[in-house]
Amino acid sequence: MNSTIATRATEIVLPGAVEPDGLQVRVRDLPAPAEGQVVLRMEATGVSFAEQQMRRAKYYDQPPFPFVPGYDVVGTVTATGPGADPALAGRRFAAVIKIGGWASHLLVEAGDLVPVPDEVDAATAETVAVNGVTAWQMLHRTAKVRTGGTIVVLGANGGVGSILVQLARHAGITVIGTASARHHETVRELGATPVDYRHPDMYEQIRKLAPEGVDAVFDHVGGPGLVRSWRLLRRGGTLVNYGSASSKNEKGNASLPVLKLFARLLAWNYLPNGKSAHFYNFWAGRRRLAAFRGRLSGDLTQVLRLVAAGAVTPQIAARVPLADAAAALALAESRTVFGKVVIVPGA
């Protein structure tokens, strides 16, 4: 239904480049939903690598401080604005919004909503909202790895990496996944061959497992290791970089490491070895909004169907109440967890 009734929202605010305990809590009345908007009651949101970079002012193209973080969210529509279908009210959806998810209630564009199957709980759906789309698109749209291929997933214990491993195995692709030794058994259970990322000869160990090279490497680290990821590829293979974790603690201009990375990847595409290098940008193509939303909705729906069918099991590292968002962020940054830290409304 259309709403003119104020909704009281509790929000977690990132006031500047602060430590996790510098997050602030704000309570305010949300404005009534505008044209094409809905009010979403949050049931699950999460901590991604983006928020870890944003709190350091290191995320490419992040908004000015202060703002409410929260890259993706799952919740129930409680009110609709003019131009939004009133039938959306009472239904549960996922949305990828870049910022704003760390709140009890928030305004969302109706066009960004993707239905969540009844049999998939909110925290599980949240775990694949951005991570599942990222993994699906990198594997099937960017690298286009075929059944029978072999790939390397750096950070196979992470939010994106653990989904990527499962999507690849479901597609009949062999996976070599890097993780710390404590996570190797779980990586094996997901179907990948684990390699210790702390081992000084990590790349040599991967090479022994795939002496003829691999069809794709998915690298979220960037930095000097990117060259070694490139060298793991067979002729015709694809390197997909989707982050620069190695530079997250570097001081200075947040855009500079990303621009250097872009330049390197672009140059590699002109080498006469049949290999290709790409930077995966979740928001690429958003200028053509209808096509972007259609692609995102279709890909997320595919992943949610696999989750509902039991073919993909999202890894939830912890469920943390919204009031303890600082603890959730610190836990995600500890590099000790397997999967994604999810924020829920209350205890």
Rank of each mutant, 00 (worst) to 15 (best):
residue 234 R to W: 08
residue 327 A to P: 00
residue 78 T to E: 14
residue 41 R to W: 03
residue 197 Y to C: 01
residue 213 G to T: 04
residue 166 Q to G: 05
residue 74 V to S: 02
residue 148 G to I: 08
residue 241 N to K: 09
residue 243 G to K: 04
residue 152 V to E: 03
residue 326 A to T: 08
residue 253 N to Q: 07
residue 19 E to D: 15
residue 344 V to R: 00
residue 95 A to T: 05
residue 199 H to M: 05
residue 279 F to T: 05
residue 278 H to K: 12
residue 130 V to L: 14
residue 36 G to P: 01
residue 45 T to Y: 00
residue 118 D to K: 11
residue 209 L to E: 07
residue 49 F to A: 14
residue 286 R to Y: 15
residue 334 S to D: 07
residue 167 L to G: 06
residue 110 A to Q: 04
residue 250 E to T: 08
residue 81 G to L: 02
residue 10 T to V: 12
residue 131 N to S: 12
residue 8 R to K: 14
residue 244 S to T: 10
residue 35 E to T: 11
residue 290 A to F: 08
residue 194 P to N: 04
residue 134 T to Y: 05
residue 225 G to S: 12
residue 120 V to Q: 03
residue 263 A to D: 14
residue 100 G to A: 06
residue 221 V to M: 10
residue 148 G to L: 09
residue 51 E to W: 00
residue 151 I to W: 01
residue 199 H to Y: 07
residue 157 N to K: 02
residue 328 A to W: 00
residue 206 I to V: 13
residue 42 M to W: 00
residue 36 G to M: 01
residue 233 L to N: 07
residue 19 E to K: 13
residue 197 Y to F: 11
residue 217 V to Y: 08
residue 302 Q to F: 09
residue 78 T to K: 04
residue 35 E to N: 11
residue 315 Q to W: 02
residue 343 I to S: 02
residue 147 T to C: 13
residue 331 L to M: 11
residue 109 E to D: 15
residue 242 Y to H: 14
residue 211 P to N: 07
residue 104 S to T: 13
residue 287 R to Y: 12
residue 316 I to Q: 00
residue 245 A to F: 08
residue 6 A to V: 06
residue 245 A to V: 12
residue 136 W to G: 08
residue 293 R to G: 10
residue 135 A to R: 02
residue 177 G to Y: 00
residue 104 S to K: 05
residue 311 A to I: 04
residue 24 Q to G: 03
residue 332 A to K: 05
residue 111 G to I: 00
residue 10 T to G: 04
residue 88 L to R: 11
residue 335 R to Y: 07
residue 187 V to G: 04
residue 338 F to Y: 14
residue 303 V to E: 06
residue 328 A to K: 01
residue 32 A to H: 10
residue 187 V to C: 04
residue 182 R to K: 13
residue 280 Y to D: 08
residue 208 K to E: 15
residue 40 L to D: 01
residue 94 A to D: 04
residue 284 A to S: 15
residue 54 M to Q: 12
residue 297 S to K: 15
residue 96 V to I: 15
residue 59 Y to L: 15
residue 299 D to W: 04
